[in-house]
Structures are given as structure tokens and as C-alpha cells.
Design a protein around this nucleic acid. Structure first.
Length: 618
RNA sequence: GGGGGCGUGGCGAAGUUGGUUAUCGCGCCGGCCUGUCAAGCCGGAGAUCGCGGGUUCAAUCCCCGUCGCUCCCGCCA
């Protein structure tokens, strides 16, 4: 009966249900008769004695089959392969002196097997299920259910669960209701492209999957719910990027009768609670506040990594004092020259500097100018232009021999962004980052409008329901570029963790914003007349924010991709290698929907699937 | 939409300035082994070097195309 190769050994487990998990036995449990259920992690057969590490989500327990065990049992043990799902009955005993394993929580004990039942066998898995599995992401996603068996993935999924649970606990305690909003809504003109869902009942019509519950949560404020949150799935049909998924999860929130600081206080309380509960980390509150302008100016990013300094500084005052035409022209055309002092990088080779320049160029810089600080003054790069003011420059930036000065001259935005990228790279290269830190900050005072070069008009920088700051209300039309909004981002360690705003609840002000971004009254009525209508019935002042759950958990888990904290993510091109989505559908399904695939939209290089659908229905 | 990188047994990699048995580790199979815990030792199987075309006496290597994956820029409030 214990011959695992016999089919009839795979049977009901009714008499072999676990009495303990694989993570809980300790020295205090000696002599207990236990039943374990789990997967064969490793099977070490020493000829006479066999050791089987049995794994479940709680841990590992060493099962032993002794030399003098019945032959039937020894044979069964010998046949156990990795990932077989088995049940083991046995007695807990102490490991001999010197054989204890301090690395294992259950390392003081072992279970001497008296009965083994194979619950199911396993083919040889495509990769070893182990902490240090070196399988590539593509393969891990193809067999995600196996990847998820590893302790490292189980830890991250557990952390995600605990974060979600503590978010609910905290917000509920603060008077927030969790309210679900529809997953099938009208397509509304927000930033990204919508995923569309064709309606069979209403041919030619489509639902859209929400990019966020934005309009609905504002309606809930009109309804008087006052404090709302939801762990909401959000869908965006945008081009894939490594840090992006077509669907992601937000901790979506909205509050009535609040200003910006009220929102900040709730979030600071929430994050403190979540980090304390899930990581036992105490966050310092209130979080720092940095204006968008300062963030760009000092760190070259609107989501700066504040775990290290290396701040950007201005070089404009020295430009007129030297005959370096490149920088002079930049300033004449209204641009900026920014400088970064890379301490002790004076030994960088031309190759290393040229690599840094490549980084700067990716973000639009024409080049990366440099000078080395030596005992004699400034050397190399563009230093010959600045010989006359070398001492002044060294003093102004408190540069020391061995330092490297790096410069980008361009329009302000480009200069900051490009040098900011160099800053980030140096932060990593020079190991300036303490990865155990969580450095939060609010980024505030974002511009409300952005100039769209292509369409030659103003766009809403965030979305068009965000409130302009009061001091700009008079001049909003005459100078849209100057208007700061009641917008805010929460950043942590170089990631944008949340984004939100105080909303416009005054229909007249809303109309003015629509007009500035070239959104006609008719268009507004057509696309979200329901929201505008609602605002005719006493809307409360309100505002909100939406932390990204995936990124939050990613940062807490110390990972660098949100794929690592999503149970079943898509890959970098928005495909699921496991279930094969997206995929073609049956002809009949298309017919029911009144849809036909046009051959123009068939995949390039056509393998035929796309065109088949089209032809068969033509 | 644009640019870079990668594709070699089940997995991860090495390799060839183009030369005939394609290497290593892990895994797998068989054997040995009484205390291991990434067990050890011995033996073995397993690869049309992503696919198609081209150059060449000869292509895994060079060229072109293509597919797949991946990173970055744009885009994504």
C-alpha cells in the first residue's frame, strides 16, 4: 500500500489529514504522533537512512525513514520525487546532538515516518522550486503556479495580503467605507486608452474597463458617503513597460470637507500603521514636503530618491564669467545650466564619464560636460574655459580635490531631468543608497496645465477635475502655465507611490478649466454629463488620493518589479504566458457581438490566426 | 512609436578572430553509500545552438529578415 508507484496508493486522504503543518514542530513537541501533508522538497537517500524535507506554506520539516524501517516503507520513501504531494504519519523525535539545523525553524526535531501515502505524483518540474531558482521570468510566469510554491513568492503574497488587511482595518477604523464601483463603465476621456468591452445585448455599444474609479468616487461624495476607499482594479491599455501592468490595484480613496493637509494626515496615519503592522518599521511623520519645482531643481525628478544627497545645483552665475559659448547660448535662450558634484569621482576614466553622458543623453541632454577637481584647481573637460574662475567655482560648490563636476545645459526641464538621471546612476554606482530605508515625501504645487507642443494647446497635467490653487484663480485664463494646482504625489525611494488632488466642486470653475484645455461644453456633457449633472445638486468640497498597492508592496518587499508581488501578472508585453491571454476568440462569440476582425488589424508577419477569423466571417 | 540587449540539452550559463566528438554547473536516469539538510561518490541519457534566407569549401559563430523575451525613451493624470 505504500508503494507510491501503485495507482491505488493515490487515494482519499481522509485518514491522513494533517495534524500539524510543516512549520510548527519544535523541541516541545517530542514524542507526539503527528501527520504532515505537503510537498517533497528534497529527498536525500543515504542507502540505509533517508531524509525527506517536506514543505508546505508554513515551512519545512525533516522526515526520516530509518534503516530498520519496514522494507515497504523504505521502498515508498525511495520512490518519492520532488513535488510529489504526500502525507506522512510519524513520531516527533529530537535530532541527535550535532545534527540540529539552526537554519530551520523545525531544525531541532525530525519526524520518524511510520506511514507514507502519496496523494499525488509530479512530473519533473521545469525548474527547481527553491529560494535561489535561477529560472528566467518568462518561464516562471509560464508555470506561475509552481513559482508561487517557493517560499520567496509565498512571503511576498503573504505580505500583500497583510498590507491589504491592515489598509482595510485602518481605514475602516478612521470611518471610511469600502464601496465597490463598477468594472464596466462608460468610456470617459481620461489620460490613458480604455480597454473596451463590447456589449452583446446592445450591438455597436461598448463598456469600458475603468482606468480608475475617479468619477464614481466623486459621485459617492455627492451621495454623502464622506469617506470612501476601495482596493480597486484599474485598467489601462497603454504601451507596456517593465514597471507597468495592464491591470493594477489602487488603494482608491476620497474624502469630503477636506483640504490637502487632511488628506496628508490620513495617508501618513495609514502608511505608519501599515509599515508598523506589516514590517515593524516606524515611519517618521509628517512626511517631508517638496514642491514640484524644488524636486526637479534639486533631484532632477518629480519622484526623487531621498535616500542619498548628491543634489543638483545651479551653475548660471559662472556662465557669463567664461567664454564657453555652449552654456552661454543655453542661458540666452532661457535655459538652465545645472551642476552635480560627484564626490571622489575624479578618478573616473573617459569611458566612465562617457557612460554617464550616455545616461544624460537618453533624457535629452546634448552632452555631459565635466571638470575634475585637483590640488592645482580644475582639470580636463571644459575646465580650460573656466581657468579664471576656478577658485571661485571650487569654493562655491565646496569641491575637494578628487571630486568630479558634471554639467548639463539645456532647457530647465531637460537639464534637470538628464542630470537627475546621472544622479540616480551615481547613487547606485557609488552605493550611496541604504536599501533598508524608506524615505517618504509629498511632492506638492504641481502645475495644473501643461503645454502640448503637438496639439498647440493646454492639457490638464493631472486630470481636469483638479482644483487650481486659490491665488491663481484670477489669472488662470491669462497665464495658464503659471497655475499651480491642489495636486500632490507621495513618493518613496524614487517611486511615485500615490497621486491625488483636491477636486473642483464648483460647476462654474469646472467650465473655466474645460475651456482652457479646449474641452467643449458639448463634449463634456456627452462624455460625463452624469458627473456634471450630479454637481448641480449640492456637491461637497472633496478630494482624494490613490496609492498604488502593487508598488507599495513591491517597495515593502524590497523588490524592483511589481510582477514580483502580483500572483498572476502579465509579462513585459502584457501577455500572460500561462493562460495565453490575450487570445483569439471563437467565431461564434464574435458573431454574437456583431464584430468582425479586419484583416488590416491582423498581426504583422501574419501567422494566419488573425486573418482566419476575418475570412471565415467574410 | 523609437532605441539597446538576449535566444546554445529540462534550467542557468560558457564558447567559437568561421574548421568537423559544442563545454560547465544544476536537474534527470542507474548504481554505491547509516545522519544528511544545496548530502557525497561513480556511471549514463539528453542539443537539428529560436526560425528562415544569404555569404563561404565549411556557419552555433559573419550578413539580412523574422519570431520570442527583456531593458530603456516616448506614452501612461
Amino acid at each position: 500500500m505504500q508503494n507510491c508507484r501503485c495507482f491505488d496508493s493515490i487515494r482519499s486522504m481522509e485518514s491522513m489529514k494533517r495534524s500539524v503543518t510543516c512549520g510548527e514542530l519544535r523541541a516541545a513537541d517530542l514524542e507526539k504522533e503527528v501527520i504532515l501533508n505537503g510537498w517533497v522538497h528534497r529527498n536525500r537517500d543515504h542507502g540505509g537512512i533517508q531524509f525527506i524535507n517536506l514543505r508546505d506554506r508554513y515551512g519545512l520539516t525533516q522526515v526520516v525513514i530509518d534503516q530498520d524501517a519496514p522494507e515497504l516503507l523504505r521502498n515508498a520513501g525511495a520512490g518519492l520525487k520532488p513535488e510529489y504531494c504526500i502525507a506522512v504519519r510519524g513520531r516527533v523525535r529530537a535530532r541527535p546532538d550535532g545534527m540540529k539545523n539552526a537554519e530551520m525553524l523545525t531544525g531541532d526535531i525530525e519526524v520518524a515516518a511510520s506511514q507514507i501515502r502519496v496523494l499525488s505524483t509530479s512530473e519533473v518540474p521545469p525548474f527547481v522550486i527553491d529560494e535561489r531558482s535561477d529560472a528566467k521570468d518568462d518561464l516562471r510566469l509560464r508555470y506561475r503556479y509552481l513559482d508561487l510554491r517557493s517560499f520567496s513568492m509565498q512571503r511576498k503574497i503573504k505580505l500583500r495580503h497583510e498590507v491589504m488587511l491592515s489598509v482595510r482595518e485602518y481605514l475602516s477604523g478612521e470611518g471610511f467605507y469600502e464601496i465597490e464601483t463598477p468594472s464596466m463603465i462608460r468610456s470617459t476621456p481620461e489620460g490613458a486608452r480604455d480597454f473596451l468591452v463590447p456589449s452583446r445585448l446592445h450591438p455597436r455599444k461598448f463598456y469600458a474597463l475603468p482606468q480608475s474609479p475617479q468619477l464614481f468616487k466623486q459621485l459617492l461624495m455627492v451621495s454623502g458617503f464622506d469617506r470612501y476607499f476601495q482596493l480597486a482594479h484599474c485598467f489601462r491599455d497603454e504601451d507596456a513597460r517593465g514597471d507597468r501592468q495592464p491591470e493594477h490595484t489602487q488603494i482608491d480613496m476620497e474624502m469630503s470637507f477636506v483640504g490637502r493637509d487632511d488628506v496628508f494626515k490620513v495617508i501618513e496615519g495609514l502608511f505608519s500603521f501599515v509599515f508598523g503592522r506589516c514590517l515593524n518599521v516606524q515611519l517618521e511623520t509628517p512626511f517631508a514636503r517638496i514642491s514640484y519645482h524644488d524636486a526637479m531643481n534639486r533631484y532632477g525628478s518629480d519622484k526623487p530618491d531621498l535616500r542619498f544627497g548628491l543634489e543638483l545645483q545651479d551653475f548660471a552665475e559662472f556662465v557669463p564669467k567664461a567664454e564657453f559659448a555652449v552654456f552661454q547660448k543655453v542661458l540666452e535662450s532661457g535655459g538652465a545650466v545645472r551642476v552635480l558634484k560627484a564626490e571622489s569621482c575624479g578618478s573616473y576614466s573617459r569611458k566612465q564619464i562617457s557612460d554617464l553622458e550616455e545616461t544624460a543623453k537618453i533624457y535629452g541632454a546634448g552632452g555631459l560636460a565635466w571638470m575634475k577637481v585637483t590640488d592645482e584647481g580644475l582639470e580636463g573637460g571644459i575646465s580650460r574655459f573656466y581657468e579664471g574662475v576656478a577658485a571661485e567655482i571650487i569654493a562655491a560648490y565646496q569641491a575637494k580635490p578628487g571630486d568630479l563636476l558634471l554639467f548639463v545645459g539645456a532647457d530647465w526641464q531637460t537639464a534637470c531631468t538628464a542630470l537627475g538621471a546621472v544622479r540616480s546612476r551615481l547613487g547606485n554606482e557609488l552605493s550611496l543608497i541604504d536599501s533598508s530605508l524608506f524615505r517618504f515625501a509629498w511632492i506638492v504645487d504641481f502645475p495644473l496645465f501643461e503645454w502640448n507642443e503637438d496639439e498647440h494647446g493646454w492639457d490638464a497635467a493631472h486630470h481636469m477635475f483638479s482644483m487650481p490653487q486659490e491665488q491663481y484663480l484670477e489669472t488662470m485664463e491669462s497665464n495658464p502655465g503659471e497655475v499651480k494646482g491642489d495636486l500632490y504625489d507621495l513618493v518613496c525611494n524614487g517611486f511615485e507611490l500615490a497621486s491625488g488632488s483636491i477636486r473642483i466642486h464648483d460647476p462654474e470653475l469646472q467650465k473655466r478649466v474645460f475651456k482652457i484645455v479646449g474641452f467643449s461644453e458639448e463634449e463634456a456633457q456627452r462624455r460625463f454629463g452624469f458627473l456634471l449633472e450630479a454637481f448641480r445638486y449640492g456637491p461637497p468640497p472633496h478630494g482624494g488620493i490613490a496609492p498604488g498597492l502593487d508598488r507599495l508592496v513591491m517597495i515593502m518587499a524590497g523588490e524592483s518589479s511589481i510582477r514580483e508581488v502580483i500572483a498572476f501578472p502579465k509579462n513585459a508585453v502584457a501577455v500572460s504566458p500561462m493562460d495565453g491571454s490575450p487570445a483569439e476568440v471563437d467565431e461564434q462569440q464574435l458573431r454574437d457581438l456583431g464584430l468582425r476582425i479586419s484583416s488590416e488589424s491582423a498581426p504583422a508577419g501574419g501567422h494566419g490566426e488573425g486573418t482566419d477569423v476575418s475570412n471565415s466571417d467574410a
